[in-house]
Amino acid sequence: MKLPQKGFLLVTLSQHQSLWDYELINQAIAEYGLKGNYWINHFSIALDELASAGLITRIGHRLDDGSFIARDRLQFEFALSDFGRERMFDTGLLDSNASSGEFIND
């Protein structure tokens, strides 16, 4: 069974030092077979929620020049926080024996 969508965003981010939001959104859209602006906004909000809760950290930002999602859209670069990693262990999204990127099914 696939991961809950927010869980997928966390697991994807845990496999990289950092990722830009459009990279995470594109991977999520491909994973769940979705398309359209609605889902781009949906995953953007999910990333905002993860950042508000402190699971991921905004380490960079810039304006889209139109080559990624939309011109003048604010883009964020995210990295997983220590707290996010801890919460991923708690919720089984990361295996405590693995350094990163491995998740277990519950």
Partner: peptide, 9 residues
Amino acid sequence: ISTLREVET
């Protein structure tokens, strides 16, 4: 309130 918690980053 852009970050709601005091957490280690």
